[in-house]
Design a protein around this nucleic acid. Structure first.
Lengths: 338, 338
DNA sequence: GAAAGCAGGGAAAACAATTTCCGGCACGCT
DNA sequence: AGCGTGCCGGAAATTGTTTTCCCTGCTTTC
C-alpha cells in the first residue's frame, strides 16, 4: 500500500555504482577529478534509485540551509500575498525555500516562530504584515539577517523595504491636476492608521505646493466601501463643490463611485476618482474602472528578498528603503472620447 | 556590526555546564537519569548561550523533519490562503512548519518543487490550487504521503479533501425555496469549469426533486461582476419572470445585485439573491449584504492537514473526502422587518 | 561481608552528506 | 632504473544531535 521505498542515501548510490561514498559525492557534485565514465555510472545509479541528497545533512556541513523564514506579523492576506510572491520569485531563482509562519497578531506566537526558524537554521528572515505601520523589531542580535517588507521596523538599524506612499499620493494628486481638476476631496481610512495619515499629508502637501487646498479637511473613517458611500453623503451635504475625490483605498473609491452615481453625479465627467492599492477586484468591478495607485507589492517583495540575500552574503543595507508606487490610469479619471 | 555570535552548539552548552554532550542532550530533552541539579545547570548554560538545537542535525537522527511542503498548483490566491491558514493551524499545534511553494500553473516548476521538498525530507506534502478541478497526481510512489486540498487528484488512490459543492448548491436552493421563491435563475462561471457544472447540476437536481425547474437554462459565463451585470440584461430581455437568482460566485452575485437595482428591481423584495464563496469583501460590499454559501476553506485546510498527519503516522485515508459547505444568510434573501 | 542493583554520567556509534588528505598507479623524463 | 607527476578514487574527519552501551561508585539486601 504505497510508498514502499525508504529514502536512498548516497551510500546506496555508491554501492550500486561500485565506488566509495566520497567518490559518489564528487561525481554528483562535479567536484574532484574523476573519469567521465565513473561520473556517468554514479549518476545513473542515482537516477535509478531516484536519489535526492538529504538537504539537512548537507547543510550540516555547509552551514547554510538555503531556506528563509517569512513571518507575517498579523494574518496573511491581501497585502502579504504579493509580497510573498515577489520574495518567492527572487529567492526561487537562488534556489531557496520559504518557511511561512502566520503570526496572527500574537507576539507570543511570533516569538515562538522566531525560535523555531532559528532552530531550523534559516539563512534569513523576512517580516511582513498587513499595515505599513512601524512595528517593534522581532529581536535584536539575532544570528541571522532580517528584512522587513511592507511593514517596517521601529528600529532604524533594521532593514525595511516600504512602499513610498507619499510619492504615491503625490502622483495621484498630480494626475488629478493634470486632467484639470482643482477642487479635490480626500476620503481615507482611520486616522490612527499610519497609511491614512501619511497619504493625506502628502496629498495636501502636493496641493499647497500648487497654491491649492483640499475642498474640505480629509475625511478619516474606515477602509470599506460602506465608508466610501457614507463619505459621499457627508460631502454632498456640505456646501462646497468638488470635481475629484482621491480615496485612500480602492474599496473606499468603489463606495464613493457607487454613491456618486446613485446621487446623479457622473464619474468621471462630474467627479474624477482615484483609488489606492490597485486591487483588480475593485478597480475592474467599479463602473467605470478605477484609476488607482499601485504600490507594486510584488516588486517590493522581490526587492526585500534581494536585500535579504545580499545581507546573507555579507552586505547588509540597514535603514528604511522606500519602494516607488506607480499610477495606473483607468476610466474613473479620463473622460472617454465622445 | 550586528550578529556577532555564531550559533551555539550542544558542545558549547556541555562545556559551559561542565558535562559531556550526551549528558547535555539528556538534560535538555528530559531523557536518561540525571540529578536535578545537573539538569538545571545544563538548562541554565543553554539559556545563557541562547542555544537552539539544530533541527537539521536532529532530524538526521530521528528521520523526521516536522516539516511539510505545500504546493499550490496555480498561483497562490484567494482560495489557497484560507486552506493554507487552516493547515497551518492544524500543523502548528503539532509543531510543524510549512514550506510554501507556488507552482504558478507550470508543471515543470511543480516537479522541481517536489524534488526540492523531497530533498528537504518533508514529512508530507499538501497540494492545493485555485480550482476544484481534478488534476494529475504530482507523482505516484513518492516516499512521503500527499494530501490534495480543495483541488483533487485524478488518481482515486490519492487522498483529496474537497468542498462538497453539490450539497452547497442544494442548500442554496433549499434556502430560496424556504423563503418562498420558486422562479429561480442560475448565473454562474464558464461551463468548462468543474465548479460551475457541478453546482448548476446540483441546483437543478434539487429543484426537479421538488417538481420545479430553473426558469431558464443555467447562464454560463465568467466569474466576474461584469458577467453578473451582463447576465441580468439577458434575464430581463427574456420573457420569463424570476424571483430569485442563485449565483455561482459572490462576484457574479454582486454584479447581478447592482444591475438589478439599476433596473429598478428590489433585492430581496422582488428578487432574492444567493452567492457562493462567502467572500466578505463582496458579501458586505453589496447592498444589501449577500446571502452566500461558505465552503469553510479553513476547516477544509485543517481537515486536510489532519489527514496528512494521520498518513504520516501510518494511517492513510485514500479517496475523495467532501467537506461540508454551510449557508450564511444575510439581507439579500431575507426581507427586513417592516 | 559480598553480591546485586541503581543512580549518574561519559564514550562512542549512528545519522547523511561533504571535503580533505593520502595512496596507488601509470606514464614520462632523465 | 629511478624519480617525479598527474590522474583516480578511497579512507577518514567533520558537522550537530541523539541514543545506546558501559563504567563507576554507592546503597541495599541476604
Amino acid at each position: 500500500m504505497g510508498r514502499p521505498e525508504r529514502h536512498a542515501t548516497i551510500a546506496d548510490v555508491a554501492a550500486l555504482a561500485g565506488v566509495s561514498v566520497g567518490t559518489a559525492s564528487k561525481a554528483l557534485n562535479g567536484r574532484g577529478s574523476l573519469r567521465e565514465e565513473t561520473r556517468t555510472r554514479v549518476r545513473e545509479a542515482a537516477r535509478q534509485l531516484s536519489f535526492q541528497a538529504n538537504a539537512g545533512a548537507r547543510s550540516l556541513h555547509s552551514g547554510r540551509t538555503y531556506t528563509v523564514g517569512m513571518i507575517t506579523t498579523d494574518t496573511i492576506g491581501r497585502f502579504s500575498i504579493p509580497v510573498l510572491m515577489g520574495a518567492e520569485d527572487a529567492l526561487g531563482a537562488g534556489e531557496m525555500s520559504i518557511f511561512l509562519c502566520d503570526g496572527r497578531d500574537d507576539p507570543i506566537r511570533e516569538q515562538y516562530y522566531v525560535k523555531t526558524l532559528l532552530s531550523r537554521r534559516v539563512d534569513g528572515i523576512i517580516v511582513t504584515g498587513r499595515r505599513t505601520e512601524a512595528r517593534m523589531s522581532i529581536g535584536r542580535d539575532l544570528p541571522v539577517p532580517v528584512v522587513y517588507a511592507f511593514i517596517s521596523s521601529s528600529d532604524p538599524q533594521d532593514c525595511s523595504v516600504v512602499p513610498d506612499e507619499e510619492s504615491g499620493a503625490r502622483k495621484a494628486v498630480e494626475h488629478l491636476l493634470a486632467v484639470g481638476r482643482t477642487r479635490i476631496a480626500h476620503v481615507t481610512g482611520p486616522e490612527h492608521h499610519n497609511s491614512a495619515r501619511v497619504r493625506a499629508a502628502a496629498a495636501l502637501d502636493r496641493l499647497t505646493g500648487e497654491g491649492l487646498d483640499l475642498v474640505a479637511p480629509p475625511l478619516f473613517g474606515g477602509w470599506s466601501e460602506a465608508w466610501g458611500r457614507q463619505a459621499v453623503g457627508i460631502l454632498l451635504a456640505g456646501r462646497t463643490e468638488f470635481d475629484a475625490v482621491f480615496c485612500g483605498s480602492d474599496q473606499i473609491a468603489r463606495g464613493v463611485s457607487d454613491a456618486l452615481r446613485a446621487a446623479g453625479r457622473r464619474v468621471p465627467q462630474d467627479v474624477a476618482l482615484v483609488g489606492f492599492d490597485n486591487w483588480d477586484v475593485m478597480t475592474e468591478g467599479a463602473q467605470p474602472p478605477l484609476t488607482s495607485v499601485d504600490m507594486d507589492l510584488e516588486g517590493l517583495g522581490r526587492s526585500a528578498a534581494e536585500r535579504l540575500l545580499a545581507a546573507i552574503n555579507g552586505t547588509a543595507s540597514p535603514g528604511r528603503h522606500p519602494h516607488p508606487c506607480r499610477l495606473v490610469v483607468r476610466g474613473s479619471t479620463i473622460v472617454p472620447p465622445a
